[in-house]
């Protein structure tokens, strides 16, 4: 069965969706991602959808679900790189993804996540957080 890889980057989980999502795949992603959050104790989830050109209301709901579930588990969700056509479609469908943070690209999304969870971050150099910060 197809799966979308979930990468762990320090305190964050990084998901890059490279294919068009069909329903089964989206449900799997939701499952895997939430399990991963609980397993790793991640503080943020970054979903890159820059390669996604087609969305429907189901996809929009899944994104919203992931965000709400992550929030309960104390992780913020940032969706980055949404295509203009996708944004227009979601707005026309009435899905404005309340509660989901958005950013233009992965870099800005990472900055935003650092901002949100309050880790000290120098905007100039992209150094990764020391993982022991929140373990103890």
């Amino acid at each position: 069965m197809d799966r979308i890889p979930i990468l762990k980057m320090g305190q964050f989980l990084l998901v890059t969706i490279q294919v068009d999502l069909y329903d089964r795949l989206a449900l799997n992603l939701e499952n895997d991602l939430i399990n991963m959050v609980s397993k790793t104790g991640a503080r943020g989830v970054l979903i890159d959808i820059s390669a996604v050109s087609i969305v429907d209301s189901f996809m929009g709901r899944i994104l919203g679900n992931i965000a709400s579930m992550s929030r309960i588990m104390d992780a913020e969700t940032v969706v980055v790189g949404m295509q203009p056509a996708v944004a227009i479609t979601l707005v026309e469908l009435g899905l404005t993804l309340q509660g989901v943070y958005t950013a233009l690209d992965v870099e800005k999304g990472m900055e935003l996540l650092h901002d949100k969870i309050g880790t000290i971050e120098h905007p100039e150099d992209e150094e990764e957080e020391a993982p022991h910060d929140d373990i103890d």
Binding site: A87, V91, T96, T102
Partner: peptide
């Protein structure tokens, strides 16, 4: 409002 929501979805 639609335009603003769409921009927000894009991350701006």
């Amino acid at each position: 409002i639609k335009t603003v929501s769409a921009t927000r979805l894009m991350g701006a």
